[in-house]
Design a protein around this nucleic acid. Structure first.
Lengths: 211, 211
DNA sequence: CATGCTTGGATAGTGACACTGTCCGACAGT
DNA sequence: ACTGTCGGACAGTGTCACTATCCAAGCATG
């Protein structure tokens, strides 16, 4: 199909698709002449994934490029590529400061990981964006004076572990390795708004029940 | 204290504080002369909350203003003010389209709410941003061809219900109504990155266990 | 009192981001 | 040949969260 049809079927404007091509989020089409290019179903699929990551998942264009590059990097092993979304995506680049709230947060998180039995090498793991973001968030809560020690975090951690089982089950349902990797990226990112929305709706529900 | 001290104790630059004052995220200080103003501890506390909402919670300045205004609106009842964060915060302004994926998503979500026993008037509830965002997210997953019907959503919904109990317990620990409302806002928003980070870390953990 | 610093308010500017608009030289269909 | 569409290049747009600059009015020190 041509760019115009790709645009129509994906819902993205041709200008946006050209922009994604420029930014490397989409492979160029097969050149059919000096001024025409042809795109296939896999382009459409990728484009839809990119749109979903950016619009629904709130991923930046640069991060989306990183994620997709990692997911497609054949030189990485399956496990690493499955984690592409986790590693390349989320967070602010602030390393630990000498802030006492951050120190408290680090201790709480470390204790939490031990209680949960999660194996995070402390050396390597400071590189994990999710870990850094967790510490930043906990530090912010501490700074505001809200209880956010291991006791408060534990229920969240246990629920996260349950979610991970459900999520990986969904990934393993995919028949092909490539399908599993795409599913890992899509489900990791796109179930986040699902989860947050449900939590807020549950708040409203529980609050209505109590008051 | 003066603006400079407020800046030092909160970590925000004076320019940023002036910006927040302009935008109505912070009450003006008590005018002490034609060119000086004095701020109190409650200003510092509010400023820290605003910073956390914006930096950690990823809330926009405009949304933060809305949330704070609702939380402080004495004419609303306690229950409504508790829900300030839920209602004023998150989501894209897209109403339902005539997209078949959206229609499917609506059906799945409606069935989910019934299974969970959550009481959402369908008429009123389309106004709930969380509900709209949920539908948008599910629609995106449907569009990509991932299973996202009531069966897949149910575990998420049940876990969200459990989280809501924990969260409201934390809110109810606050002694004063005003404290409860601030806690509701802060905990609703700031536990979101905590939850998402933990989920990603749990993914890594579970994935390592399986592969 | 003069001097030089700081203060808070007003206003304009910045840089990042995700597009979007415009132009142009090929084609492709008739 | 004519007309419309195509893809590529590149400059421009709107939004957002600040940030830099000015300014006049204090205050602090000599």
């Amino acid at each position: 199909m041509r760019l115009a049809e790709l645009s129509e079927r994906s819902g993205a404007s041709t200008a946006t698709i050209k922009y994604y091509l420029r930014e490397g989020l989409l492979q160029p089409g097969r050149r059919i002449s000096a001024t025409q290019a042809e795109y296939g179903e896999e382009h459409l699929r990728r484009l839809r994934l990119v749109r979903a990551l950016i619009q629904i998942g709130g991923v930046s264009v640069a991060d989306a490029r990183e994620v997709i590059a990692a997911a497609e990097d054949e030189s990485l092993d399956h496990h690493l590529r499955l984690g592409a979304a986790t590693r390349a995506l989320p967070c602010a680049e602030r390393p630990a400061e000498d802030d006492p709230a951050v120190a408290t947060a680090c201790r709480s998180v470390e204790a939490l990981l031990e209680r949960l039995g999660w194996s995070c090498d402390p050396g390597v793991d400071m590189l994990n964006p999710a870990h850094r973001r967790l510490i930043d968030s906990v530090a912010a809560l501490v700074r505001l004076g809200y209880p956010c020690d291991t006791e408060q975090l534990l229920p969240y951690g246990r629920l996260a572990a349950q979610l991970a089982v459900t999520d990986l089950d969904m990934v393993e349902e995919q028949p092909t390795p490539a399908g599993q990797i795409e599913a890992a990226v899509a489900l990791t990112v796109l179930y986040e708004p699902v989860l947050l929305s449900l939590r807020r709706m549950a708040h409203a529900e529980e609050s209505a029940r109590r008051f």
